[in-house]
Design a protein around this nucleic acid. Structure first.
Lengths: 303, 303
DNA sequence: TATACCAGTTTGTCCTAGACAAATGTAATT
DNA sequence: AATTACATTTGTCTAGGACAAACTGGTATA
């Protein structure tokens, strides 16, 4: 018979891979009739490869603003069509060479990617590199992956190359002794650190002395870090999938525990619709909106 | 009364912060009588700051090999005593300058760390840098953190600096055209990528053409990556806390799906006690055991 | 001395089905 | 066009039971 090993997934694996809670998977099954997994010998859910694929598509559609009730119970054809629609809106090559880059990464020409990125950086400088190359590249990578056009490993590779180039670029800029000190990090649960790197680069170029603490810093530890490093600003990045209430709670907690002199900067896709924030929280909705903020900081420190 | 804001935590926050599953927290409460949280208006568990602190201590002790039944229900005093014991055994500075490094990171002299690392690298070369600086530094950082002597943010910073230095070092080595191709990655759930970097550096020095896919690569994607990049070797890293059964299952699956010509290399603390592996899986228990493996590879490719 | 095997215990994760608040959508009103 | 009020959707929590995998410790074998 030579059965191909029908690879199967436990609820835990699916939940981690797709980024949807176990409870949510179970309640979708109850409510929308998908995904209904097979069962193992002790009654545990056993998901098929196809179900996982479908879940991945759904997850991306949710990121795009669709609601579970509308998409989870769709037929395969309807879902495909939706996914295709998303694909179409995506052939938007802000910078022609960014598209090229992605294509060559996809073709397995891995060694080409990083040199190309570096040459783009030299050509455009920090500001334009971030807004015209790094951000669109990330965006395109995400979309292409969601549409199933890109394998995960290519996404990993591209992300990795990009983060390395950004890292290096940051380090080549020597901020002035009197620049404002900025701490960068994300809250627990937010594992995307690329936004931080892009922001860090722009801040450095603006003369800030940045310290990137990496992702998922517990609030208490952030407070400790502030005590130790005495920054003028703390910058936080939130991606789209953060819950607003948790976000607000975290911001309030931080705000209440940080010395009053420390300003808080929040950015990322997750903050686009925030209102009613504590006074010293500044929201940065667009990457290029950082420049004026940095300038203001600089002034404030000088005087 | 000027109440200090009695910060309280939901089960979700606690679970993420400490890294213990929600189900586990609930079952500990049932079995060991700790942590018994307060309840919110709808009966949800509400954990106090002290409980979270205690959980953090417990979590460290578990990492050290203690079992929940022994430590979760201890009295505060007994727990403190245990924690103290752990602290004492740990002042073990393998390389004098490594200890120095950690101390200066702790003192907030963040800017010093990376230059020092780079100078150590220049002095020692790849092999010795990895075994005498990188590995001990990581180990010490982990221990110091477990003992509560090091804030998380310092650990993040040190890790970040180290990974950057390793990254750069890798990239400065140009492997020969005929070197064996090696793919490096970890399985889903394994988020520690530092081991990969150390291995990558040593492999590069040994003349291998490495491609680091980063962490948490689903098995299917690894197969795809192999089809696309055609490596002679796939190297996987496992840290201590991986479940053995999952590990074996993953290895078997990979082994069954990869072309027979591809060799599999596994390493990391998680593999120390493995036996009964598929034939082409080679276990590397020590970092310095890689060199001979690389040499063998090289020969194999040449002939 | 080391290793293999066996029974007993510990431990993490999964199960079901119900509940409810926060988020979102829709309609009516200013 | 912006508020307000009401209805629906949606994620996460709860309870206690169940069970396999992992570990412990003892015994027998190479």
């Amino acid at each position: 018979m030579n059965m191909p090993p029908v690879t199967q997934y436990t609820i835990d694996e699916v939940s981690r891979d797709i980024g949807i809670g176990k409870d949510t998977l179970r309640v979708w099954e109850r409510r929308y009739g998908f995904p209904v997994p097979g069962r193992g010998p002790q009654g545990e859910r056993v998901y098929s490869r196809d179900q996982v694929k479908r879940l991945r598509i759904i997850s991306r559609l949710l990121d795009r603003g669709y609601r579970p009730g509308k998409v989870v119970s769709l037929s395969d054809e309807q879902l495909q069509e939706l996914a295709l629609q998303q694909q179409l809106g995506q052939v938007n090559f802000d910078h022609p060479r960014v598209g090229q880059l992605l294509l060559s990464a996809q073709a397995g020409e891995n060694a080409q990617v990083e040199p190309q990125l570096r040459s783009l950086y030299r050509e455009l400088g920090p500001q334009r590199f971030v807004t015209e190359v790094a951000a669109p590249l990330l965006d395109m990578t995400g979309r292409a992956w969601a549409a199933g056009q890109l394998s995960i490993f290519v996404e990993h590779l591209v992300t990795d190359h990009l983060s390395r180039v950004l890292h290096d670029a940051c380090h080549q800029i020597q901020p002035p002794e009197d620049g404002p000190r900025v701490l960068l990090t994300t809250m627990p649960g937010e594992r995307h650190g690329m936004g931080l790197l892009m922001v860090e680069l722009m801040l450095r170029e603006g003369g800030a002395r940045t310290v990137n603490l990496g992702v998922e810093m517990p609030v208490d530890e952030l407070i400790l870090a502030c005590k130790s490093l005495q920054p003028e600003v703390v910058a936080l990045s939130f991606s789209a999938l953060q819950k607003r209430s948790l976000l607000m709670a975290a911001l309030r907690e931080i705000s209440s525990k940080l010395p009053a002199s420390v300003q808080i900067l929040v950015g990322g896709e997750g903050v686009s619709r925030l209102r009613m924030l504590p006074g010293r929280v500044t929201v940065v909705r667009q990457l290029d909106a950082i420049a004026p903020v940095v300038a203001a900081l600089h002034d404030r420190v000088r005087h």
